[in-house]
Design a protein around this nucleic acid. Structure first.
Lengths: 241, 241
DNA sequence: CGCGGGGTTGAACATTCTCAAGAACTGTGG
DNA sequence: CCACAGTTCTTGAGAATGTTCAACCCCGCG
């Protein structure tokens, strides 16, 4: 956190240049997007803005966790370090995504690291402010519970995948998922991260990713168009690996 | 769900024999144990009891999920099946634990299986009843959020462990954790499940479990007293593997 | 006492990792 | 616009780690 810039934009409405972007930031988040204008304004008063340069650490393991971070612009890498020092990429946050939720409702430490992948601006809500708000407007709790439930489901699914599937299968499933999400008409999609990050995310090495992609191409399931762009030739086949 | 017995014990207070056990069941659960007597009674009115014989399935993947299950007596195995048909043990529920939370807040399907490991009785709360209750008493939401946050944290930790640690390390960490939880004065603990289940939980095979335990014993970290009872000789060593 | 399931052990095999070297890409300054 | 430096990516070969399959053991239970 070397050159971090913090500006409080809620209590005084003098810094007009950022208020607008906060609002759009907050309203992007599923948790909040059903709120009335007045409630939204109330939240806005407690929100702070912060920006981070590429490579800066937003929080790290062992830091006390007491804020929710919502991405306004940019990209954030969330990763963990194992006891043996190996890194695992947990997820990548894009505008509208948030992090910091795990410790928001219980006082505790972060167990992961958040790093700005590019210059990034975020909105910060402190735990106590959010808790007040939740007690006042219970409907938000249900939204958050929904989001938590969905993350939990996703995480348990991923755990099961690690436990039961081999690397090749995990890669194939990942490709299929990316393809699904982009649903471009060209039959192609773009890998959402570097192969290095992908390896870390899937619990393997860049070398293995490289080799398996070559295998999949050789077997006619996919075709590598450029470094990051991949064409899917046989989706059903991919899902059966 | 062959011989499942359902009895509604809330709306009429005639079946005294079970009301007591429900109450103790509910009050065991962290989510509810801070409630006032009146609120508790209100919940009790919406709770149903169910019992399952050893081996019976409580719910399975694809079943619509609309209830929270709280274990009163017995043991429940929660597991998943991968696309390729392999099974992964997600967790084992003991009295006071609950399941069904993932889909409680969003309409969806179960993705896992719940099977009674022994004769088991549970309390069931339907989604809509619980949601009403949450909106009425927001403080419960915070408790549930806390529980969710803790599960999410745990699950992400486990995912990261699968992604970065080899089987031997995962086993060592698991042993250390069991040892911690039992903190018996004898320096021993009891494996909480069969080696078969343990293999499924840790994403490996019974053969590997067997071999690694033999290795750990040979290297002087542990000593197998009986089939399930293990003595820890060098905890620090275990944690460094 | 024999049956069956879990548990253990061995040997061959499959998968993935590691290390090392070279190729391709990216961004930067001239 | 090009050349260079620093990455990231790919490929190869050998080593480590786990899995599979098969045989056997052990113990509880009918």
């Amino acid at each position: 956190m070397e050159k971090r810039k913090l500006s409080n934009c809620g209590h005084t409405h003098t810094c007009n240049h950022t208020v607008g972007s906060h609002k759009s930031c907050i309203s992007l988040v599923p948790i909040f997007n059903h709120l009335e204008v007045e409630q939204m304004d109330e939240i806005m008063k407690t929100v702070q803005a912060a920006s981070f340069k590429k490579g800066e650490i937003i929080y790290q393991a062992e830091d006390p966790s007491d804020s929710l971070y919502i991405v306004n612009q940019g990209k954030i890498r969330i990763y963990r370090l194992s006891d043996s020092g190996k890194e695992q990429l947990v997820r990548i946050l894009n505008p509208g995504d948030f992090t910091g939720e795990h410790a928001l409702f219980s006082e505790s430490m972060h167990e992961s690291y958040a790093e700005a992948m590019v210059d990034t601006s975020v909105c910060v809500i402190r735990r106590l402010d959010l808790q007040d708000f939740l007690l006042k407007y219970p409907s938000i709790s249900l939204k958050i519970l929904e989001e938590f439930a969905s993350r939990l489901k996703q995480s348990e699914k991923q755990t099961a995948q690690f436990a039961t599937e081999k690397v090749e299968t995990r890669i194939a499933l990942f490709l299929a998922e990316c393809y699904d999400q982009e649903k471009s008409s060209t039959g192609t999609f773009i890998l959402p991260m570097s192969k290095k990050d992908l390896a870390s995310y899937l619990g393997t090495t860049p070398e293995t990713i490289s080799r398996k992609l070559a295998d999949l191409e050789e077997q006619g399931y996919i075709k590598r168009k450029t470094n990051k762009r991949i064409e899917v030739l046989n989706l059903d086949g991919l899902l059966l690996i």
